[in-house]
Design a protein around this nucleic acid. Structure first.
Length: 615
DNA sequence: CTAGGGTTAG
């Protein structure tokens, strides 16, 4: 541009400076900044955006020496910049400084600082700024209104949030978006969906932010199919998804193993040129892993131009979930050598990988290394991983000792890890201890009662089994129904244990009966230990119909071409009987079958499972 | 150069 004799003007230069800051060519930026307020503002904002507190403050105090007068944009840039880089407190401090220097904030200043105030949950300050904005006469500024809604939402003040919305004078998409987010943030997804529909019905021009928000809310709150439908709908009404929409949608695909939808989103990213975005890339790694395609996750990882901590963690978590312990540890070591510094999530991933592979020594090694070499203090999650690792390896006493010695109060995850291990090894005495704690911590979780009752049943302690069942009955609890999903030709089918409503149910039952005859012929018999768990009257129909994962696998057999692979996901852990049956199916029908349960992936091929029966 | 929606674990 310069070589062609085109002069830089005051509008072009700030853009260049901002780009320099973004690319960490900060020195280049500094040289360019000596040209006045516009450039100064851009550099300040650039530093703040990168989270460079020290540099921002240095440059900020230097401006007087250089005789540069800062304006409103300079202040707003810093506040927004700090906010963007997660330095919320710095953003608030900047706003207060601005106030002290008697600079009059505008709607942008107020909305930036309110966002930070919300993240810090400084409700009192939020109220004060609300009052201040009204006093300044900008209480109805569009940015201010939506920022107030956002702030009250983050502070869990849904009442104040709705008040601001109802009292606003002029309808605005931003405010609508903030309201939808605020509702879902506070666990009111159904309300969020309802108001979203209302807005759409009222003819409000919903934009990409509106659609992205509602899609993200759905995929974060178990409304995965809704998320997929909304994604389709937004394109139908002509709103183009962008590099934020895709990472919001992909978890929904992963959650229900909707590989075709995930692939479609991947194609969309490639076509629209956003596939090199870090968020998109990391979300793709996660999606492919959760859809059973861990090798594609690795390809996505390798192809990424820039990776961040989340990309690395997502790949490790994927390997852990697939029981590929060695690969997970390799990635961890690669990361130690030439990746970002591992964080607490990285350690959760590597510990859970060790746990899947039964590597207790390595687990202990990483657990200790975490605080010793990385200065990361173990959290509840890490203890839960360790209890799981030790317990499943049969070292139940050691697991219990670990719980007793941990520096904070164990939560339900920790005790739950012990109880499941006790179920694996059928340890009554420790199982009772864990269950007793869990009944206090989460009295309404049926899973804990079921586990204890199964432990008793495995030892033929029928009086105790009945006692636990009666406890459940008296609390009005029922076993969570087993539920499995399978995607066939881009349509997701849900099968619930004991529910015969699927139109192909008769065929499924027929096919299952055939398979069961074949299985007996080849000398395989169901695992009686697992049959015991279904002695209750209410579960009789489940024995007849089979567990949901079995039904889903058979549905897959019936509706896909011979030899193609099948993937199923389940909301509970796979049962031993189904595990045996699916192993048989994989060899008898010559199919690769992927089953993802709450814990991990089971990859069945030629009659064996990738978990090597350790789960 | 100035807001709003974002990926990983459990």
């Amino acid at each position: 541009m310069l070589s062609q004799g085109v002069m830089l003007d005051r509008h072009v230069l700030p853009t260049i400076i901002k780009a320099c800051a973004g690319l960490s060519f900060l020195n280049t930026g500094k040289q360019a900044a000596s040209t006045g307020c516009f450039a100064y503002s851009a550099l300040l904002a650039g530093y703040a955006r990168k989270g460079c507190v020290k540099e921002t403050k240095e440059l900020f105090s230097k401006r007087a020496d250089e005789g540069v007068e800062l304006n409103l944009v300079s202040w707003n840039g810093m506040i927004a910049g700090f906010n963007h880089s997660g330095r919320h407190l710095e953003a608030v401090i900047m706003f207060q400084k601005m106030h002290l220097e008697a600079f009059k904030p505008d709607g942008t200043s107020i909305s930036s600082v309110l966002s930070a105030v919300g993240d810090l949950e400084m409700l009192i300050l939020g109220f004060q700024i609300h009052g201040y904005a009204i006093k300044m006469g900008i209480g109805q500024d569009k940015c201010v209104v939506s920022a107030l809604i956002d702030m009250y939402g983050k502070c869990a003040c849904t009442l104040e949030m709705s008040e601001v919305f109802d009292e606003m004078c002029q309808m605005d998409v931003g405010a609508c978006n903030a309201l939808v987010m605020g509702l879902s943030r506070n666990g009111l997804v159904d309300n969020a969906l309802k108001v979203f529909r209302q807005f759409k019905g009222q003819g409000i021009e919903l934009n990409v932010v509106s659609w992205t928000s509602i899609i993200g809310s759905c995929s974060q709150n178990g409304k995965d199919i809704e998320a997929l439908e909304l994604f389709r709908e937004m394109q139908l009404v002509g709103v183009k998804p962008n590099s934020v929409t895709i990472p919001c949608l992909l978890p929904a695909c992963g959650n229900i193993a909707a590989l075709m939808h995930g692939k479609a989103a991947h194609c969309f990213s490639l076509k629209s040129g956003i596939s090199s975005n870090v968020y998109v890339g990391s979300a793709l790694i996660d999606m492919y892993a959760k859809c059973g395609r861990i090798h594609v996750s690795k390809l996505c990882f390798d192809m990424m131009l820039t990776r961040n901590l989340v990309s690395w963690n997502a790949l490790m978590a994927g390997y852990a979930m697939h029981g590929k312990t060695k690969e997970a540890i390799d990635i961890f070591q690669w990361m130690q050598r030439s990746g970002p510094k591992p964080d607490f999530v990285s350690f959760i991933c590597v510990l859970s990988a060790c746990s899947q592979g039964g590597l207790t020594d390595e687990g202990w090694y990483y657990f200790r290394s975490m605080s010793k070499d990385y200065g990361i203090e173990a959290r509840l999650e890490h203890y839960a991983c360790m209890v799981n690792l030790l317990g499943r390896a049969g070292r139940l006493q050691e697991a219990h000792t670990m719980i007793k010695q941990m520096p904070f109060k164990p939560d339900a995850c920790v005790w739950g890890a012990l109880l499941s291990s006790c179920r694996v090894h059928n340890n009554v005495s420790l199982g009772e201890i864990a269950a007793k704690k869990l009944f206090e911590l989460e009295p309404r979780n049926p899973g804990n009662y079921i586990l204890l009752s199964n432990i008793y049943a495995s030892k033929a302690m029928w009086d105790e089994v009945n006692m636990v069942r009666n406890m459940m009955k008296s609390k009005g609890l029922r076993k969570n129904p087993g539920c499995s999903w399978i995607e066939i030709k881009s349509k997701v089918h849900m099968l619930v244990a004991g529910d015969n409503s699927h139109p192909q149910m008769a065929q499924i039952i027929e096919k299952l009966a055939e398979l069961s005859i074949e299985m007996k012929k080849s000398g395989c018999f169901p695992d009686t230990d697992f049959v015991l768990q279904d002695v209750e009257e209410q579960d009789k129909e489940q024995i007849l119909c089979g567990h949901s994962e079995k039904l889903a696998v058979v549905l897959g057999l019936l509706n896909t071409s011979p030899g193609s692979s099948i993937q199923v996901i389940k909301n509970l852990r796979i049962c031993g009987d189904c595990h045996a049956v699916i192993k048989f199916i994989s060899s008898f029908e010559k199919r690769e079958i992927f089953v993802r349960d709450t814990n991990r992936f089971h990859h069945f091929k030629d009659g064996v499972c990738s978990c090597r029966d350790y789960w």
